Computed example of a mutant assay.
Amino acid sequence: MEQHAPTRTAVRPPQIPAPARRTRISQGVRDSFSAGLGIFPLGIALGLLIVQAGLPWWLAPALSLAAFAGSLELLLVGMLAAVTPLTAVALTVLVVNFRHVFYAFSFPLHLVRHPVAKAYAVYAMIDEVYAVNASLPEDERSAPRLLAMQIACEAYWVGGGLVGVALGSFLPAPVHGLEFALCALFTVLTLDAFRSREELPSLLIAASSVTVALVLTPGMAMFTALLLFVGLLLVRHAVTARDTAEETAHA
């Protein structure tokens, strides 16, 4: 008798039922509220800075959609207004956004199956989304929840920029100090992540890295602090793994 080779059936990831998907989407939108309280004012600050620098209003949504990196966009406005050389702009982008390389090590991109959705998740992987997602338990993370949070955060940023442009066209004098919302937002997110994870050693390592970076390299403190932080975390991981192996051997 003629034998036929068994056909292989493609294994598809389990589909999330529609009601559960809607629930997770609503959870993602709710997750974005705490970050949105800082993202929206920052977007307003971006729009105001663009108008006050004499740049065209459409630069606010264009930058927000092309880059979607709050701290970088605020820096780029001043660099564009000063006609900074392209090499300096490229170096600034590398230094400021280099931290996203380290985010990728623990960001749950494996949850997102669709290639287009995965590409958007990479594009929209900002500090606030990373921090809020890191505070969630592993069993509560999902692709719909993550993507909904990212889309909502981008809506806050783009919408805030448009509001800032509108306000800037009516205000008679420039507004100063709104950029402090970025520092305040990161502080709140750090405290929230610490409260949920109770990782005092990591918090102390981060504080030490920032302190050393500010003293040794104040001009590029963020880049230096990130390298020190990752290096110290690797040392801590190696020490913890060695202690665990020794305890297992003696058990």
Rank of each mutant, 00 (worst) to 15 (best):
V11P: 03
N97F: 03
A134N: 07
L185G: 03
L146F: 03
R197K: 15
L74G: 12
A20E: 01
S106F: 06
W157Q: 04
Y103I: 10
L227V: 15
Y120G: 06
L111G: 02
L200V: 14
E199T: 12
V11C: 11
L171W: 02
A20K: 01
T9I: 15
P6R: 13
L234W: 04
R195H: 11
A82R: 07
I50P: 02
A88L: 11
N97T: 04
V129R: 09
P17Q: 01
A166Y: 04
N97P: 07
S202M: 12
Q150M: 09
L232G: 04
L232W: 08
G231M: 08
L228G: 11
R22E: 00
L86T: 15
L185R: 01
A66R: 08
M220W: 14
G159V: 07
V95H: 07
L46F: 07
F33L: 14
T248H: 15
D127F: 04
S106L: 05
S209A: 07
V235I: 15
T84M: 05
T87L: 10
V188A: 15
I151R: 10
T248C: 12
H250D: 13
P17Y: 00
L182E: 13
L189F: 08
L146A: 01
A131H: 06
L80D: 08
T9G: 10
Q52T: 15
E247D: 14
A82M: 09
S169M: 13
A249E: 13
L233Q: 15
A225D: 01
V188R: 05
E199M: 11
H100V: 02
V212D: 01
T240L: 14
L76D: 00
E198K: 15
G54P: 07
A241S: 15
Q52G: 02
V129W: 06
F223N: 13
P13E: 02
L63W: 02
G161E: 01
T187A: 13
